[in-house]
Computed example of a mutant assay.
Amino acid sequence: MRTELLTLNQERNVTLTAYLQETGGAFSYISKRPAILILPGGGYQYCSDREADPVAMPYLKAGYQVFILRYSVKKDAVWPNPLKDYEQAMTLIRSKREEWNVYGDRIAVLGFSAGGHLAGCAATMAENKPNAAILGYAVTRGEDVQMCESTAPDVISAVTEETCPCFVFATCNDQLVAVENSVNFLQALAQKGVTFESHIYAYGPHGFSTGDTSVQNREIPLCSRVPDWVEDSIGWLKDVLGDFGENTMTEPVCKAHVSGDYDTFLSWDCTFGYLRNYAGAETVMTPFLAWLEANKDMLAEKIGPAAQELVRKNGMEGLYFMADSRSFREILNHTGMTKAEKQQIEEALEKIPNER
């Protein structure tokens, strides 16, 4: 492994530390690696060393190229300087992906506290967004972050369907950054259908980093499960970015959105309710809905007793109530249609652009 220290902005003392692992040779099955960009916390007054190198090590062990950005702080933290620092760092990493043996489409960002605010901004409003974001006890509410830096923006209102998948962890009794910062951010992700994983631990202080005794004073009560966030986040990254294959990365098993409702084209991974109400899907859905009307009792029986009761009381509206939030794939699997019939429906849907 080699280490490089690059100065991104000398005037504001912005630096990027790169920890670059070997590929090829003893790692003959690895030609490139995924990467993670770490943004330490520090209330936009400094970049905490406790949330820099100690955090880098587990991701190096997991096979990642690791970068640590020490962004603009104190008087230089006026917005949008920190976000510009992130943009410059991410642009540099992706531009040097061949030299640094990085998969340009497999780069995550990890931020803590104020660095978590910056990671949230990267995930929601950056031009050069990460492919995944990990936010640790992050400040996301505008009124909270502006206590540290008055020009910093609200993250929650910036969440859109284009926000990348997020992993969020915090503690319930954080007395510096209220847990509502994480909870409200998660609610915004859910409203936009963005994939996320969350770990809100029962208790622990702000700024616990990895939770190891080497970085956290154990005289302060800390939930014993807090350190699990590190391995959990690495496992989650494998789900949303893929894992090491033979000179490639495997396909992610977890999509960026919780359903196909947000994809470029329609598919049977869209929810049934979305498809039956989508104006451009009538040619596919109208004949299916007519078939469903004629066979609603059979389908309700396959879904279960609750569906049967709802259909008995409310007819098709009862069936829609049970089915609308389910994927169309699941509904089709209950119909008894042949594989060829279902494939015909899928192929027809895939030709229809999804114009949300």
Rank of each mutant, 00 (worst) to 15 (best):
N128Y: 13
S209F: 04
V230E: 01
R97L: 14
L118H: 06
R225D: 15
L60Q: 04
I200N: 08
G136N: 08
K255E: 12
A77T: 00
G211C: 05
A307N: 10
M1K: 13
R276I: 04
F328N: 05
W236N: 06
V159H: 01
V179G: 05
D324S: 05
D154W: 03
Q45W: 06
Y86F: 00
M1E: 11
C121F: 07
M147R: 11
M1H: 11
T91K: 14
Y86T: 08
V179C: 10
D297R: 14
E317V: 01
S267P: 05
T140Q: 07
M57G: 12
F288E: 06
N354D: 02
D154P: 08
V230N: 03
T23D: 11
E341F: 09
L289W: 07
A77F: 05
T17V: 12
G142F: 06
T91W: 13
A306I: 13
I345G: 00
G42C: 09
A190M: 12
Y29I: 15
A108G: 08
L135P: 01
G25A: 05
F112Q: 01
C270H: 08
W236K: 02
A26I: 15
H117V: 00
L83G: 01
A190R: 00
S233G: 01
V109T: 09
S95T: 13
A132D: 05
Y320K: 14
G136V: 04
L69T: 08
A256L: 13
T7I: 11
Q146S: 02
R12Y: 04
E317I: 04
Y19P: 06
R225Y: 14
S327V: 03
A77L: 03
W229H: 01
A56C: 00
